[in-house]
Design a protein around this nucleic acid. Structure first.
Lengths: 211, 211
DNA sequence: TTAAAAATACCTAACTATAGGTATAAAAAA
DNA sequence: TTTTTTATACCTATAGTTAGGTATTTTTAA
C-alpha cells in the first residue's frame, strides 16, 4: 500500500453507491486510494489492522446501526474522519451522527464538485456538509426546536377523539362534559397550534407525533 | 451513435447513483451504451428525439413524480422499457409503477450480477425485479390488502389543501374551480374512505400514506 | 370505438365548527 | 401559601361543512 496516498473507505450496502463514489473519485486517483465494504463488521475488523484516513459511512446499513458504528469507529481509531452518507434527510439523524463523532454529513445527491470539496474540508479538520444537508441543518426545524406546543392531558384526549371523526357533542357525551367545555378545549388547541381549523390541527398533531 | 448497441438511459437526481450504475455496466460496454439525466424533463425531451431501449427511472425525483413520468415515457415511446429504480421499499409504490407501464423494479441495493440479469430479462420482454424487490412483492402486506381507497389526481390535490386547513372556497379559488365542484370532490372522498368528516378523512389519508 | 371513470357543476336544508368574548373551581407549581 | 395552569362552563353570531340528491362533459381504459 502506498503510504503517501490518502486512504478513503466506503461503507455502504449498495454496490451501486460504492461504484458511484469510486467513480467520482477517479479524477483524483493520484491523491486518494479507496477500499470499500458492504458490511459494518467487515470495516471494523479492517480498521483494527489498517490505517484509514477518512470513511464514508452509510447510516442505514442492514447489519448495523449507523450511530453505534460511528462511535465504534471513533473508539478504535479516533484519527479516522467519519462522514455520514445517506439519503435520510432528517435533521435529528444528522445531529446524532455529529454527536457520535462524525465530522460531517453528505446526502447521496452530492455533486462531484461538492464531494471533493467536502473531502478536502474534512481532511483539514473542518466540519462539512453537502449542499442540501447544509440547508437542512440551517433550518432549526419546526418539529425539533419550536417547543412542541405543550398539550394538556385533556387536550390530547380530545385530539384523539377528533381524529376519530367525532363531533363536539359526541366527545362531550363520551367524556361526560358539557359540549361547551369541549368547545373551549378545541378553541384552545386551535390557538396553541396556530391553525385555522380541525383539519390543520390534526395534521400539525400528526407532524408532532402526537397522533 | 452506434445503431447496433442497446441504448440505456438513467434518470436519477443523484450523480452518485448514475456513476454507480454506469460503473456496474462498464463490463458490458460492448453491448450497452448509456446516457444519463438528473432531471425528468431533460429525459423527456431527449426521448422525443432519440431512441432509447431501456430506462432506469428513479421514482423519487425532485422535479417530477415518478408515476407520472413513467406514464409520459410510455406515451411518447411505448417501445422503451422502463425499470423503476429507488430506495423506496413500499409495495404500493412498486405496484403503481407497474400499473403505469413499468416492466420491473430495482432497489438501489441491487448487486452487479442481478443488475445485468434484470436488464437481460427486461429486454426480452419479461417482468423483472431485484432480489429484495421480489421479496417485498412476494408478501401481500397487511396495509396493501385492506383495499387502499384509490384516490384520483384531483382528489389527492384537494386532500393536500384540506390538510393545510383551507376551506372549500379557498380551494376553489386556488384550483380555479367552482366551490360546488370542490364540495363534490370532498363528498366523494368522504364516501370513498367511509368517514364522517374531514378530520377523520385526513387521518385515514395519513395512515394510507397519502399525506 | 365504446364503456367506464373522473372531473365538472348545481340545488336545498340541516348540522357543525369557529371567532369573539367572559368567568370560576380545581390542580399543580413556585 | 400564593400564583399559575388546567379544566370547567357559558353567550352570540357567522362561517363552513355535510347529507340528500342530479347531471353534463372530458379523460382514460377496455
Amino acid at each position: 500500500m502506498q503510504q503517501d496516498k490518502i486512504i478513503l473507505a466506503i461503507v455502504d450496502d449498495h454496490p451501486m453507491v460504492i461504484e458511484g463514489l469510486k467513480s467520482l473519485l477517479k479524477s483524483e486517483t493520484a491523491i486518494y486510494t479507496s477500499v470499500s465494504f458492504t458490511k459494518g463488521r467487515e470495516f471494523i475488523s479492517f480498521l483494527s489492522q489498517n490505517e484509514v484516513n477518512l470513511v464514508f459511512l452509510d447510516i442505514s446499513l442492514p447489519d448495523a446501526n449507523g450511530i453505534e458504528l460511528c462511535k465504534e469507529i471513533k473508539k478504535i481509531s479516533p484519527k479516522t474522519i467519519v462522514l455520514g452518507l445517506s439519503n435520510q434527510t432528517e435533521r435529528s439523524m444528522m445531529l446524532q451522527m455529529l454527536q457520535s463523532g462524525a465530522s460531517g454529513y453528505l446526502l447521496k445527491n452530492v455533486s462531484p464538485d461538492e464531494l471533493l470539496t467536502c473531502i478536502q474540508e474534512a481532511l483539514h479538520g473542518l466540519i462539512t456538509f453537502s449542499r442540501e444537508a447544509k440547508e437542512i441543518m440551517g433550518r432549526p426545524s419546526k418539529a425539533g426546536l419550536n417547543e412542541v406546543a405543550s398539550v394538556t392531558k385533556r387536550e390530547k384526549q380530545i385530539l384523539q377523539l377528533l381524529a376519530q371523526g367525532k363531533t363536539t357533542a359526541a366527545i362531550a357525551t363520551e367524556l361526560f362534559l358539557s359540549p361547551l367545555t369541549v368547545d373551549t378545549h378545541r378553541k384552545n388547541l386551535l390557538q396553541k397550534f396556530e391553525v385555522k381549523n380541525t383539519a390543520e390541527l390534526l395534521m400539525a398533531a400528526v407532524h408532532q407525533k402526537l397522533l
